[in-house]
Design a protein around this nucleic acid. Structure first.
Lengths: 210, 210
DNA sequence: GCAAATTAATGATTTATTCAAG
DNA sequence: CTTGAATAAATCATTAATTTGC
């Protein structure tokens, strides 16, 4: 899967490689001379322009057909393959999203993190609780049961929840109780919760029935 | 990050926050600090993170006990009540489901609606297409959807893409084909593509099925 | 000015999730 | 429970931009 066997790949068109932003092109290693130094696709500014316009117009995940046609059209500006278009949209979409996300996330300040990391002394050793989450539920939860059961293994790994305590109250009953108050406002985290991709401090909602 | 779009915004003075779609930073580590006058729960990013992790780990409808314990744990990060946890799971579950169902017919489908209505010659039935266009789930598709829909008008104006030839190839199949070659190297532009701010020649990827 | 060295972008691959069909 | 399909996230890899010393 590695070689990507893309032999014919050079995209440097002699004399047609216009840099709209008057960026200085390094003539040496890449191309004008041999013209066939092929590495990865190097889109021309026109190609990027068109692709960007399409993206701005709302296209995100072009179909195979669309990809082929875009590629075909863009080949006017320089060498290009369908897969380049495919990858371009994948990458551009992902990186736009990433950009957005980063901007909004950077504002999130958690002053608790450091404190928390110092705080979790009395963490019980992460041991696996065997029988977690083997619930029996009512009919209207069939769908969720499927989902839950799919990920049962994960749940066990994560050691999230104690069992039982299901089916004792209806949702409306729960709600009634919650509206009353309920929040204990516990201010410490004696437990750990482990996941693969963690951003938050360890937290285990196993909750030894405090 | 989190669609969970239920985050309250009581902390925002001017309402010009950037990340309306995302988690919002709460003032103090604990809601009590700023004497918040807010009416509804405004989850901290840590709270949302934990809740999301729990959700992703399979939890869908936490029991009363679980809710209380989650709430209790999360109160470390800021003000929270049990009912907030209850509502969060209710809403998140519902919105995830809604997203799954709904998103399957947007993006390309929406943006090609206009074209399809006129040119449904060798285009597979919408149902077929819808089947092909399965889920794009994943947490911030809400944002992308917004973007797409925002510019739907532009897209329709541009009439960019036909929508067909779906389902015939999987993504891996697409890749394989693309890796093979595919580039037609078409050297002419029989079509026009119109945008507002154009720098590149007219290009219409409507492409009458060459 | 010019390249070597370094850094930033971005093309290309791989891995992980997700839902749902079998 | 297993697997296919789709694709987002993460990662690898290469090229361009930029910096730097001469």
């Amino acid at each position: 899967m590695e070689d990507a066997g893309m032999s014919g790949f050079c995209n440097f068109k002699a004399g047609n490689n216009i840099n709209t932003n008057n960026v200085v092109v390094r003539g040496g290693s890449n191309g004008s001379t041999t013209g066939t130094k092929c590495g990865r696709w190097n889109p021309t500014s026109e190609q990027v322009k068109v692709l960007t316009d399409l993206f701005r117009s709302g296209l995100r995940t072009p179909s195979t057909d669309q990809i082929q046609k875009i590629s075909s059209q863009l080949s006017f500006y320089g060498k290009i393959e369908s897969k380049n278009v495919f990858y371009w949209f994948q990458n551009h979409k992902a990186r736009e999203r990433q950009k957005r996300r980063k901007v909004s996330i950077d504002e999130n300040i958690d002053m608790n993190k450091d404190f928390l990391l110092r705080e979790d002394k009395n963490i019980p050793s992460p041991k696996h609780i065997a029988e977690i989450y083997h619930h029996h539920r009512r009919r209207d939860h069939d769908y969720e049961d499927q989902v839950c059961h799919e990920q049962e293994g994960v749940i066990e790994t994560l050691q999230l929840f104690p069992l039982n305590s299901f089916g004792e109250y209806s949702d409306s009953e729960k709600l009634r109780r919650f509206h009353a108050n309920e929040c204990k406002e516990t201010a410490a985290f004696p437990y750990t919760f482990e996941t693969d991709q963690m951003d938050h401090p360890p937290l285990d909602l196993r909750l030894s029935f405090v």
